[in-house]
C-alpha cells in the first residue's frame, strides 16, 4: 500500500503586495502570507523565500506591518535576480519564521548598541522599531551604521524617524562619500569611540559582513565589552532552515537552528578560525 510522505520544508503561498527599491541592488518586499505565519516573527529570525521553479533562499525578517511580512533582499544570485523581476501581485512561497532572533527580553532596562554594515541593518530594523514602540522599556539606543557608499544605505527614508526616537544617538559613515555626504567617512568601527556608550549597561547587537563583525568585536572588547554583552547574526548557507541539511554548520552549531543570532561567548572558539 502506498503511503503519503510529508516534509516540513513546504512553502506557504504568499503574495507580493508592495516592493520598495532601497539601493541599486536591494529592494524591500512586502509579502502577504496566506493564512498568516505559523508564529509571530521575532527580529533577527529569517524565512525561506521560494520562487517557483527556481529555488529557495534564506532572507532575514525586517518587520511585520499589519500582518504583512517585510523582507529586504539583495540581488546577488540566481534566485534573488529572478525575485527582482517579479512584480506586485506575483506569488512566491514563504516558510518560517526560523532560528533564534535578537535577545529582546535581555535588552529590557539596558542600553542598546546597534552596529550594522551594509545590508546588515535589515535584520536589526526590527529591533529599532521595537525600541521605538516600547520606548520606556529600554535605555539609550545607539545606532552605528556604515556602508560603502551613501547610495548603499538601507531605509534612508526612515532615518529621520530613527533620529526622533527619544534618547537615541544615530551615527552614519561611508567608505566612499559623494559630494552631498555630511557625516563620517571611514569604517563603521571608527564610530564606536565617537558614540556615548556606557559600556557597563549596554548590550551590543552586530550584523554585517563577517570581516566587519570581527573588527567590531575587537573594537568593542577594547572599550570594555565582555563576551556576554555582544550578540551577532551569522550568514551561512541555510538551505533547509531547520537543522536538517547540514550546510550552515559553524562548529557543532547549525546556524539556522541554534542561530542565526549568537551570543559571542557561545561561539567565540570558532568565530576567529578562518573557514571553520
Amino acid at each position: 500500500m502506498q503511503e503519503v510522505v510529508r516534509t516540513p520544508m513546504v512553502p506557504v503561498r504568499a503574495e507580493i503586495v508592495k516592493i520598495v527599491p532601497e539601493t541599486p541592488d536591494t529592494k524591500t518586499f512586502y509579502f502577504r502570507v496566506q493564512g498568516g505565519l505559523v508564529e509571530a516573527p521575532k527580529p533577527g529570525q529569517f524565512t525561506e523565500v521560494y520562487v517557483p521553479g527556481v529555488g529557495e533562499a534564506p532572507v532575514s525578517i525586517c518587520g511585520l506591518e499589519d500582518g504583512i511580512l517585510v523582507q529586504t533582499v539583495r540581488s546577488v544570485g540566481a534566485l534573488t535576480d529572478y525575485l527582482f523581476k517579479m512584480r506586485e501581485g506575483d506569488l512566491v512561497g514563504i516558510r518560517g519564521p526560523y532560528g533564534k532572533g535578537w535577545p529582546i527580553e535581555k535588552l529590557a532596562g539596558k542600553d542598546v548598541l546597534i552596529v550594522a554594515g551594509g545590508i546588515g541593518l535589515a535584520p536589526l530594523r526590527g529591533v529599532i522599531l521595537e525600541v521605538e514602540r516600547n520606548r520606556g522599556k529600554y535605555g539609550k539606543l545607539t545606532i552605528l551604521y556604515g556602508a560603502r557608499t551613501p547610495s548603499l544605505l538601507l531605509y534612508r527614508y526612515e532615518f529621520d524617524r530613527y533620529r526622533e526616537i527619544p534618547n537615541t544617538e544615530f551615527l552614519l559613515t561611508v567608505d566612499h562619500p559623494d559630494e552631498t555626504w555630511r557625516y563620517h567617512v571611514g569604517v563603521v568601527t571608527e564610530l564606536i569611540p565617537m558614540a556615548r556608550i556606557d559600556v557597563e549597561r549596554t548590550i551590543a547587537l552586530v550584523c554585517g559582513p563577517e570581516i566587519m563583525m570581527r573588527f567590531t568585536v575587537k573594537a568593542l572588547e577594547q572599550i570594555g565589552f565582555k563576551e556576554n554583552q555582544i550578540y551577532f547574526s551569522l550568514e551561512r548557507r541555510m538551505k533547509c532552515g531547520i537543522g536538517l541539511c547540514g550546510h550552515c554548520q559553524v562548529g557543532p552549531y547549525f546556524v539556522c537552528r541554534h542561530g542565526p543570532v549568537f551570543p559571542y561567548w557561545l561561539i567565540k572558539k570558532y568565530f576567529w578560525v578562518d573557514e571553520i
Binding site: 500500500m1 502506498q2 503511503e3 503519503v4 510522505v5 510529508r6 516534509t7 520544508m9 513546504v10 512553502p11 506557504v12 503561498r13 504568499a14 521560494y50 517557483p52 506569488l91 512566491v92 512561497g93
Partner: peptide, 16 residues
C-alpha cells in the same frame, strides 16, 4: 519531497 504548482499549491508524493 513534493510537487509545487505555479499557484503554490502542493502535492505530496506517495511511496510504497
Amino acid at each position: 519531497l513534493f510537487i509545487i504548482r505555479p499557484d503554490l499549491s502542493v502535492e505530496y508524493p506517495r511511496f510504497e
